[in-house]
């Protein structure tokens, strides 16, 4: 039997052997945690609008995101966000707090290699692709819109 065929057979065998269990509860945890984070966001936004009536809805939304980002960074620093993540999975990755965690966690982790080449360089090792692709898609949308 040649190597390619052997490897193909082995990979198929391993794929069949890999346990596929206990996936369902994680969906519920992700739903719950994600939903609650969004509700907290809505709460912050409503409080801001009530306290500062002059605020536009858009500005209140921006403030709300900044506040959520602040608390996610703080929880990351305290070492709690990764514990939420173990439980919630995408429930704490997909909200903007997950974006904040993905910037704060490498920054904290690589501080020991120096402020510039450790902290600052590694800060975007996970969130970098988000910003790069985000900018790319916004430019693309802008170009398409220009010609419409």
């Amino acid at each position: 039997m040649d190597v390619k065929e052997r490897n193909k057979k082995y990979n198929e065998y391993v794929d069949a052997k890999v346990p596929k269990t206990k996936n369902f509860p994680t969906l519920i945890y992700a739903y719950l945690v994600g939903g609650v984070i969004c509700m907290i966001g809505q709460g912050i936004q409503d409080i801001l609008l009530a306290l500062f009536p002059s605020l536009t809805l858009e500005d209140a939304g921006a403030w709300m995101l900044i506040i959520l980002i602040f608390f996610a960074s703080l929880l990351t620093g305290l070492g709690w966000y990764d514990r939420i993540g173990v439980f919630a999975g995408a429930g704490s990755i997909v909200p903007i707090t997950g974006f904040s965690n993905s910037i704060a966690s490498p920054a904290i982790e690589f501080k020991k290699e120096g402020i510039i080449f450790g902290l600052c360089v590694k800060m975007f090792s996970i969130a970098g692709p988000v910003i790069v692709n985000g900018v790319a898609i916004s430019v693309l949308v802008g170009i398409v819109y220009l010609f419409l």
């Binding site: 995101l65 602040f70 960074s73 990351t76 920054a107 904290i108 501080k111 902290l119 800060m123 969130a127």
Partner: peptide, 11 residues
């Protein structure tokens, strides 16, 4: 916000 808070808390 994400950058500056990460910077502060990383320190």
């Amino acid at each position: 916000a994400a950058v500056i808070f990460a910077y502060i808390f990383a320190l």
